[in-house]
Simulated scan of single mutants.
Amino acid sequence: MLPEIEGFKKWLRRRAPKASTPIHYSSDLALFFTWLGKPPGDVWVQDIDAFIEHSLVQGHAFATINRRLAALRSFYHFLTVEADDAPKNPVLPKRHFIHLGLRLPRDIQDPDLEKLFAVIRGPRDRAMFLLMLRCGLRVGEVRNLSLKDLYLDPSFGSLPRLWLHGKGGSQRVAYLSSQPLAALEVWLQIPPRVRDEAVFLNRFGRRLTVTGIQKRLMNYCREAGLWVTCHQLRHTFGRHLTEARVAITSIQRLLGHARLRTTEIYLHISDAQVQADYDTAMQEIARRLPLNGDEA
C-alpha cells in the first residue's frame, strides 16, 4: 500500500476511531491506484473520467462508484492539509459524482423473516440479528457493542436500553423490547471462554468483525433458501414501525437518523393512510366503471 494511503488511513482513524471509514476508504484507494498505475501526484481529471467509465463497464453500483470518488476526494484533501505543494484535487463533484434518484429501502417480507429465523438457532446469532430486526441496529453497532453499553435493569418505568457507538462515531440509545432482551439475556448467561468487553465474540474469544457477522447471515440465508442483508433487517424494523403508525419523529430517533428526510422514505414503502385512500378510491372507481369484459 502506498505510504500516502497509510498516512491517510491513520488520519481518518484519529478523527473517528470507531468508524469503519478508514478501512473502506483505504481499500478503495488501493484499488484505484492499482488500476491506474500512477502515483498520486500524476492523477488528472481525465483519469477520474476513465475510472468511472471502467467502473460502469464492470457493473459496479452507482453508490459504490460515488463512495470511491468520495474516498479519492477526501484523500486529496488530506494531502493539501499535510503539504503546501500537494497535487490538485482531480475529483470534481459536479463533473464526476453520479446523481442518484430517490432510493427506497429494501425491506424483508414477513414470510421470509419467519423462514430466516426458523434456521437461526444459536443464542449468539439469534441475539445479534434480533437486535437488528427489533431495535434497528446497524451491523457496525452490533459489532461495537460492549458489556458496559448494556443497561438491562433500568429504574421503574424505563425500558432496558443499549448505548450505541454508531455511524461516523456518533452515539445514540436503542431501547429493548421483550423479544431481543430475552435473546440477549440467554446469550449473556453462557460463560465466555475469555474475559473480553465485547458482547459478541467469535470462536477464538475475540470481538466479531462486521464481515464475520455478515458471513453468519449469509450461511443462514443459504440454509433458508433466500437472500437478505443485515441492513435489510434494519429497514424492516423501520417498516414495522411505520405500519404500527409510530410518529415519524419517533422513528427518526429510533433509527438514529440525523435528518428527518432520511426517515420519511419509509413512508413510501408502507404508508397506511395512502394505502387506505387508494383502496377506497379503487373500490369507488370499480363500482362506477366495472369493465366486466367477460360479460360482454
Score class of each variant (00 low, 15 high):
M1T: 13
I5K: 00
K10P: 04
K10Y: 12
R14E: 15
R15D: 01
P22G: 03
H24W: 07
Y25G: 02
S27N: 13
D28T: 12
D28G: 01
A30N: 13
L31G: 08
L31I: 04
T34E: 12
T34A: 14
W35G: 15
P39G: 13
G41T: 08
W44I: 10
F51L: 12
S55N: 10
S55P: 03
V57R: 14
A63N: 14
N66V: 03
L69N: 03
A71T: 07
S74Y: 01
F78C: 00
L79I: 07
L79E: 04
V81E: 15
A83M: 04
A83S: 13
A83L: 09
D84I: 05
A86L: 04
P87V: 05
P87N: 03
N89Y: 01
P90A: 10
V91G: 02
K94Y: 04
R95P: 06
H96A: 07
I98R: 12
I98Y: 05
G101I: 00
L104K: 02
L104G: 07
P105A: 03
P105I: 08
D107I: 08
D110N: 10
P111Y: 06
L113H: 01
L113F: 08
K115C: 06
K115E: 03
P123M: 02
P123V: 10
R124L: 05
M128C: 05
M128Y: 11
F129A: 02
V139F: 06
V142W: 03
V142S: 09
R143I: 01
N144C: 13
D149S: 08
D149Y: 11
L150H: 07
Y151Q: 12
Y151E: 11
D153Q: 12
D153L: 07
D153V: 06
P154R: 00
F156H: 10
P160C: 13
R161P: 01
W163K: 14
L164W: 01
G166D: 03
G168Q: 02
G169R: 00
V173W: 02
S178E: 11
Q179A: 14
A183M: 02
L184D: 06
L184A: 07
V186W: 09
W187E: 08
Q189Y: 09
V199H: 04
R203N: 15
F204E: 14
F204C: 10
G205N: 04
T209Q: 05
T211Y: 14
I213K: 00
Q214T: 10
C221I: 05
H231G: 06
Q232V: 00
T236E: 06
T242K: 07
V246H: 09
A247P: 13
A247N: 15
S250T: 14
I251Y: 09
I251M: 13
I251H: 01
H257N: 09
H257W: 01
A258N: 00
A258G: 05
R259D: 10
R259C: 05
R259N: 08
L260Q: 02
R261K: 11
R261D: 15
R261A: 15
I265V: 12
Y266P: 00
H268T: 07
D271H: 08
Q273K: 15
Q273S: 12
A281D: 06
Q283C: 06
R287G: 10
N292D: 13
G293A: 04
D294S: 12
